[in-house]
Design a protein around this nucleic acid. Structure first.
Lengths: 200, 200
DNA sequence: GTCGCGACATGACAGCTGTCATGGTCCGAT
DNA sequence: ATCGGACCATGACAGCTGTCATGTCGCGAC
């Protein structure tokens, strides 16, 4: 019996995924959580073999949870289940120690299959996405990412400068560099491309 | 036995929702579809009482599907199931003839409950979201929405002008007007606010 | 010790953005 | 017939954006 913790911030999707897995004879959803922090609490209370987690959640993201599990419960394996086929997310999931990276776009039965594979010691990662992640590493520096993230929301260069304790000219330099690296024509386009690739 | 068609572009979520509903004795998922167009084909082949549909799907959105069902199958009732608590989406769902507007953030069992309520002739819409939709109608004109949508992707005013067969000055006027209506400081912020409210 | 990169900064300049004033046309409501 | 709003346009101007040159500092690799 593979004991599984499900982590997903949308209650209905969480309940539905639990219903999907409960159909399987050899799998049992022993607990659920709506964010990474709640998940860590559940792990203190329930013996678990596999954690299935979404990425984008409030309080604590799935990737932060994955890293924390790697530190505190190295015997537990993590399946990341997300909407986004983004190489950058896969890079970060892999770095965080994930054993599988699954898309919600995959057939329903692939979730149970992936859980069994991971339990048996395999990694489950789409080879095409893995190749893309290798072919195109994140070109942004830490600061470029930070200023681009704020620019994406419409913050002006002056606002970004104040928020990050930088001069306005420095912010413009970072933005200009990021725009160039992404082959964009302005900050909006650059942010869109970075987000699409999971670099933001 | 309430016969239900499920429409959702993510296969795994589709399968999970089907598993969730199949637990109920009085509900049956008679077909599934991954976009609006496929759904209409299913409706020609299966007698259905209720359609449960996501909004954001390729090929044909859930709202377009809803409008088409209202025209072609007025006896079928539509439950919109979405991630977004956006008053603008609710407005458009209501205009398209939806009988329920549910969030994926609601408890899992509320989906079956909503299907039963709608089957019994009731509407299921969060009163708070409904009030918000009434209190804050979409302030954007059609053209303002069009130029803002393109600006959101990083298109320059010149590009938008060419794409929409307008002069650049006209585009700037529309953008400026939209920015003012949304109380934003630039196009990026305006687009973010409009999108958050479901007006884009 | 040297080199390269990231981080940070200043300054200059061209071009884009956003605002504003002004004005015309079309169409539906009154 | 009149009015108001949406749509469309031109022009002027202030300020923001993006590029580029130049430079310093810290740090890790060699």
């Amino acid at each position: 019996m593979i004991r599984t913790l499900l982590v997903e911030d949308q209650s209905m999707v969480l309940g539905a995924l639990a219903a999907l897995l409960d159909i399987e004879d050899d799998l049992r959803v022993v607990a659920t959580a709506r964010d990474g922090r709640e998940a860590l609490v559940m792990l203190e209370q329930h013996p678990v073999d596999i954690v299935v987690t979404d990425i984008e959640m409030p309080v604590m993201t799935g990737l932060e949870l994955c890293a924390a599990i790697g530190r505190r419960h190295p015997e537990i394996r993590v399946v990341v289940l997300t909407t986004f086929a983004r190489a950058g997310y896969l890079q970060r999931a892999t770095e965080a120690g994930a054993h599988a990276y699954l898309l919600k776009d995959a057939p329903a039965r692939s979730l149970a299959d992936a859980i069994r594979s991971v339990r048996a010691g395999h990694r489950v990662i789409d080879p095409q996405l893995a190749a893309q992640a290798r072919a195109e590493p994140d070109p942004l520096t830490h600061r470029e990412r930070q200023v681009l993230r704020r620019a994406e929301t419409g913050a002006t260069t002056d606002q970004i400068a104040q928020a990050l304790a930088l001069s306005e000219g420095t912010v413009r330099n970072y933005l200009s560099s990021a725009i160039g690296k992404l082959g964009a024509r302005n900050r909006a386009e650059a942010a869109g491309r970075a987000r699409d690739k999971g670099w933001l």
